[in-house]
Simulated assay, not measured.
Amino acid sequence: MSTHDPKRLLVAVNPSASFGRHRPVGPVVVDALTKAGHDVHALERSSEGELREALRVALGGGALGDAGGAARPDALVVVGGDGMVSLGTGLVASTGIPLALVPTGTGNDFARALGLPFDDPARAIAQLVTLLDGSPRPVDALLARGSQGETWVAGGVSAGFDALVNERANRMRRPRGRARYDIALALELLRLRQVDYEVVVDGVPQEVAGTLVSVGNARSVGGGITLLPDAVVDDGLLDLLIVDRLSRRAFLRLFPRVSKGTHGDDPRVRMSRAKTVTISAPGVVAYGDGERLGPLPIEIEVVPEALLVYAPISTS
């Protein structure tokens, strides 16, 4: 069935994205969008660096995929997890090219924030076909500035316990899926680190002896751990979470509440909103959308409506 508004779509596929147990999801997405009447060009490369460079050329109006062409795409569709969201956001934020998601990853936290099906690729593909008949919605993006330059982030930046879990999980080859994150989480709990931070919130510095520091635009990390229960993707503000220094036993007691997003009334938890946040601490690495940003210090600024997305519901 033809769409009312055929679009020129660039589809970027994570080679490890799967549909069901054995079926690759990329061809399913391309087939569904083509049948809907869109002009679809798929890009899949063996490495993230090669994929990023090919996308950069195509989004700039260069050769689209392997079929050639010079027209600027009407949207970038990313197929994969939060890593693909990070890749897509870095390429299209502030360009006016919309981003569309088919979440197939372990966490899919930005998809959760947008109200997209995050655990059912078939439903996500069907919904995407419908969404492309409408208009994209503007949401905020985070601009992170650190030792490795400027990086666009869609969902959130972590620089505490959650970042350490990401660092460990990314070093692990087994198991795959959510279990790897859960094991990394358990191992980091065993060696819980306390960090002395300097956090500057809208120009006001504060010394923080903390366990967890997270700045975000989305509510959750790690596949639904609701660190920032009040975060909204289009309110023009960052949500900041600071968990004070805790013993391992106290943190273990608090963590179930953090996971469920019911920790806001705990006196050891501080939540606030800001336009810019700078985080400094020795020996700590920051992560954005689950991807390594580099060592602290890092400055995070919210850029209102910097990203256009195809989302099913009003985001406010």
Rank of each mutant, 00 (worst) to 15 (best):
I125T: 10
S47K: 00
L114E: 03
L91T: 08
L99M: 02
R56M: 07
R56E: 15
G62S: 02
R112A: 05
T151N: 13
P117S: 12
D82S: 12
V139W: 10
L132C: 13
V57C: 04
A75Y: 01
L143D: 11
A163D: 14
I125S: 08
A126M: 09
G115V: 04
G149S: 00
R112H: 01
T151Q: 14
L116A: 09
V92G: 03
A93H: 02
G146E: 01
E150Y: 14
I125H: 11
G149V: 06
V57F: 05
Q127I: 08
D82G: 12
E50W: 06
R112I: 04
G80D: 01
G65D: 03
G160L: 14
V102K: 00
A124L: 05
A124S: 13
A93P: 00
E53A: 15
G68K: 07
A141S: 15
R45A: 15
L131M: 13
L128R: 10
G156Q: 15
P73S: 05
V102L: 02
G105P: 04
V139S: 08
A124I: 03
W152E: 07
L64G: 13
M84E: 01
D74L: 06
S46Q: 12
S147K: 15
V78T: 13
V79A: 01
T104P: 07
G105Y: 01
G90R: 12
A100N: 05
V92T: 06
P73I: 10
A58F: 12
S147H: 12
L99K: 00
M84A: 05
E53D: 13
G90Q: 06
A67N: 05
G105E: 02
E50V: 07
G61R: 03
V79D: 07
V139D: 10
A75T: 08
A70C: 10
T104W: 15
L64F: 13
G90S: 06
V102I: 04
M84P: 04
G96P: 02
S86R: 03
R52A: 09
V102D: 09
N108M: 00
R145W: 06
Q127G: 07
G81N: 04
N108R: 05
R112S: 06
D109N: 08
R56C: 10
D82R: 08
G88Q: 12
D120M: 08
G146S: 01
E53S: 14
A163W: 12
T106Q: 06
